Computed example of a mutant assay.
Amino acid sequence: MRIAITPSLSLDDAELSFTYILASGPGGQNVNKVATAAQLRFDAAGSPSLPDRVRTRVLELAGSRATREGVIVITARNYRTQQQNREDATQRLVELLRQAAHRQAYRVPTRPGRAARQRRLDGKAHRAGIKQGRSKQFDS
């Protein structure tokens, strides 16, 4: 099965590996007995699904969640069931990949047009006239 990231990018769910660990937090004695926290591992450096641009960006965005080998590790322990934590970890990885796949819009530097320059000068002249009117008038 494939996980859709963007319309042009998707991941094979076989690239994700999950392990379950004991979680802290709510659950009473159940927390001590059942491994409900999900730890997702995704080998971003070796993934055939990611273009090079997205690969480098996602490893940069992952920060301390990425290992030296380029494996992203996400631990989800917000919920009391393995399934909910698994879905939470997957969703967090998808959001990270979407953020990495988003391309910044290239800003084309422009100059103010002739009318804008004229409006600016008119405003300055108007302001100067107001200030000129505040000065003392000397009658000779």
Rank of each mutant, 00 (worst) to 15 (best):
T75Q: 09
L22Q: 14
S10D: 14
S49H: 12
G70P: 02
A62L: 06
G46H: 10
L50Q: 07
V31G: 02
T81R: 07
T36Y: 09
L50M: 11
Y79A: 14
R77K: 13
R86Q: 13
S49I: 08
I72S: 04
T36P: 07
R80H: 05
T36H: 07
D13N: 15
L61S: 02
L93W: 06
P48T: 09
N30P: 06
S8W: 12
E60P: 03
P26Q: 05
L59E: 05
T6F: 07
I5P: 02
S64A: 15
A89M: 03
V34L: 01
Q83G: 09
D52M: 11
L61Y: 04
V34P: 00
D52I: 07
N32H: 13
G28Q: 05
V94I: 15
I3K: 08
V94G: 02
A62M: 07
P26R: 05
D12P: 04
N30A: 14
Q39I: 01
Q91L: 12
D88I: 04
E69K: 11
N32W: 03
T19R: 15
S49T: 06
A14N: 13
G28R: 07
A14I: 11
T75V: 14
N32L: 10
F42G: 01
S10T: 08
A45N: 11
L9N: 02
A35N: 13
N30E: 13
T81L: 05
P51A: 12
L93Y: 07
I72W: 02
S8Q: 14
A66Q: 04
A38W: 01
L22S: 13
R53G: 11
I5M: 08
I72H: 02
P48Y: 10
A35Y: 01
S49C: 12
A4E: 15
L11T: 01
T90D: 01
E95F: 11
A38F: 00
N78M: 09
S8H: 13
G46K: 03
S64N: 13
R92M: 06
F42L: 10
E69S: 15
R53E: 15
D43I: 01
R2M: 15
L16V: 10
A37Y: 00
R57V: 05
L9E: 03
A66N: 01
G63T: 06
P51R: 11
L9P: 05
A4Y: 12
R86N: 03
P51C: 08
F42W: 12
L16Q: 03
S10I: 02
R41E: 14
V58W: 04
A35R: 13
D88T: 08
R65L: 14
A44E: 02
A66S: 09
I3Y: 10
A14C: 10
G27L: 06
T19F: 08
L50R: 01
D12A: 14
D12V: 07
E15R: 11
E60F: 10
I72E: 00
L22M: 13
L22R: 15
L9C: 03
V73M: 00
E95T: 15
A62H: 00
I72P: 00
G63E: 07
P48K: 11
N32F: 04
A35K: 15
A38D: 02
A45G: 09
T19C: 10
S24W: 00
A76K: 02
G27D: 03
R55G: 06
Q39H: 04
I5Q: 01
D88K: 07
